[in-house]
Simulated scan of single mutants.
Amino acid sequence: MMYIINAFHCRAGGGKQIALSLINYIIENGQMKQFMVILNEPLKKELGDLSKYQDNFFTIEDDLSYLGKLKKFKMIENKIKPPAVLSIFGPTFWKPKAFHIVGFAKPQIVYEKEYLSSNALSSFAKIKFRLKYTLQKWLFMANSDCYIVESDDVNLRLRQQFGLKESEVITVSNTFNQLFNGYENRISEYPNYPTVPFRLLAIGTNYPHKNFSIIRKILPLIIEQNINVKFYVTFSEQEYKDSFSGFEEFVINLGVLSVKECIEAYKNCDALFLPTLLECFSASWPESMMMGLPILTSDRSFSKSICGEAGIYFDPLSPIDVVDKIQLLVKDRELYNRKIEEGKLQLKKIPSAVDRAERYLKILKKQEHKS
């Protein structure tokens, strides 16, 4: 008996990292014979040499038509006849005959009202947003039997919006990359402020919902109040020029970083700055806890459900409140150190990558006893 793991939709960011982590766990623990993994071509390349397991991986070409891809999915299911299928992240355009467990990480669906009320989008963009995510919501509901989400807050909201039972939505928290292991005992010293700038790490891709544009809006207040801080962003070169031309003294671009480079960025900064408007989970939160950095982030239910007492929260749409909270942290040594300790405690509630993989497989294999 074999299960199908569908990683075809995992192409970037957290989705790709979870797929790689789960597949590598299965290989390293000698369980590959139990699974057929469906991949896209880029993900297959990242996994390296799979010749030893060539009968356990099936790659679907990206240039196939919708019907061509659907035919391949159906063909592999008819061949394997699995008791259950796990699609690491959805939505999917394929509804298996077997019980279908689908990962959900679309904050645009469960936090739609809050995001659209933030005025982050134009009227036309809001129409496009609603059309896109109404379709995605339909695909989730039409093609899924059970959902895996990354936080209890998303769990509650998804059940409310989709009209689901508690048993149909399971929380499996995301976590930090395994490469961060070993840094949990790092000692973080309070920065030598104000003789040197307080370094705020704004790590992440420059998506509109990340709200990094607030940095440009708060810089005049920071300059006016003589707060000695610098922001470190991870933008492409063109995005950096478009966003911060004329403010290079206050905003330094680290460029797009690998995981190992991210670790160095955390080591060389004093706090995380994440003003996001939408999130199911951000690995930046537990990574900061692991690296001993206090967290400045949005006063939203999704961030509080992950960060708890470790966060210092601000209204991400209020430049005045953002600056007030930055100033509060940089001037209060006791608060700075306390938030680091709170982060260590909060981190204990977040599973390791191994714990997460084991939980995923337990949920998948549980369906064997129901079939």
Rank of each mutant, 00 (worst) to 15 (best):
S213K: 15
T171I: 02
I88G: 08
L277K: 04
G14S: 10
S352Q: 07
A353C: 09
I340Y: 00
N192I: 12
E334I: 04
C10E: 10
N78H: 12
G204C: 11
S236F: 07
P286R: 02
T134W: 10
K71E: 10
E239F: 08
D299I: 08
F8D: 04
K260H: 13
K349S: 14
Q346P: 05
G182P: 14
L139P: 01
L361I: 08
N143E: 09
S123M: 13
F162A: 10
F235G: 05
K71C: 12
I5S: 00
L272E: 08
I5G: 03
R333H: 09
V169T: 07
S371H: 11
P319R: 03
E261M: 04
S118T: 04
A357R: 04
A353Q: 12
E264D: 14
M141G: 07
M1Y: 11
E239S: 12
I148P: 00
I252A: 06
A202P: 08
K95G: 03
L67Y: 11
I203L: 15
E264F: 03
R186N: 08
K325W: 02
N24T: 14
I203C: 02
R186Y: 06
E341G: 01
N192F: 11
G308P: 13
I312A: 10
K52I: 11
F180W: 01
F176A: 14
E184G: 03
Y25I: 15
S151T: 15
K16M: 13
L257T: 07
Q31A: 15
F73V: 09
I252D: 03
K241V: 13
K348L: 14
I127P: 02
F140S: 06
Y133W: 13
L200I: 00
V323R: 00
Q54R: 15
E309W: 09
N6E: 08
S245M: 07
Y193D: 00
H369R: 11
S65D: 14
I218V: 15
L20W: 07
F281C: 12
K95T: 09
L272P: 00
I214D: 01
D49W: 11
P351A: 08
W138V: 08
K95C: 09
N174Y: 05
E249D: 15
A12H: 09
G182A: 10
R199L: 14
F57H: 10
Y111L: 13
R216L: 12
D153A: 13
I227D: 07
L335N: 05
I215L: 12
T92P: 00
Y147A: 12
C10H: 02
Y240S: 03
L70S: 10
L43G: 10
L277I: 13
K304C: 08
V102F: 00
I170D: 06
G292A: 07
I88R: 02
F235H: 14
D355V: 05
A84R: 10
G292Q: 08
N228M: 04
Y190E: 05
I215M: 06
I306A: 01
V256P: 01
F73G: 04
D324H: 12
